[in-house]
């Protein structure tokens, strides 16, 4: 039997592995991002994503997929297409700047003598 080289380039997958076709053309349900709040007082935390035909069903699918082990007291679903994300290739411009700027952290400053309630 002929060995298959999984790394070999194929005609089906465009270079870089990015599928450029619109998923809607394949009648795939749209993607939703799910946020779960585990208990009162905490904030909603991104838990993952899922497919659903609309918001109401997305909420129900989120309940089934992400809270079946008692993880949640509240759920948000957001259309993934509505999320504007920072560009992974622009990490430098976005996130390098704060590095090394220790004076932006409270611990940088020495407590002044004689100042109460600090």
């Amino acid at each position: 039997m002929e060995e298959t080289d999984r790394n070999a380039p194929t005609d089906q997958v465009p270079e870089g592995g990015v599928v450029t076709e619109d998923p809607a053309e394949h009648s795939v349900w749209p993607l939703w991002e799910v946020f779960v709040r585990s208990s009162r007082g905490l904030s909603h935390v991104h838990a993952g994503s899922l497919h659903a035909p609309d918001a109401a069903m997305a909420l129900r699918n989120a309940r089934d997929l992400y809270t079946r082990r008692n993880e949640g007291t509240s759920l948000w679903v957001v259309p993934a297409a509505d999320i504007t994300a920072s560009d992974p290739d622009s990490k430098g411009g976005y996130f390098e700047s704060p590095k090394g700027k220790s004076y932006r952290h409270a611990t940088y400053y020495k407590q002044s003598e004689g100042v109460p309630h600090l």
């Binding site: 349900w29 899922l50 497919h51 659903a52 129900r60 699918n61 089934d64 997929l65 079946r68």
Partner: peptide, 11 residues
């Protein structure tokens, strides 16, 4: 029909 529905019916 979908993975999500698979889990819903299973639940």
């Amino acid at each position: 029909p979908e993975l999500e529905e698979d889990i819903a019916l299973g639940n």
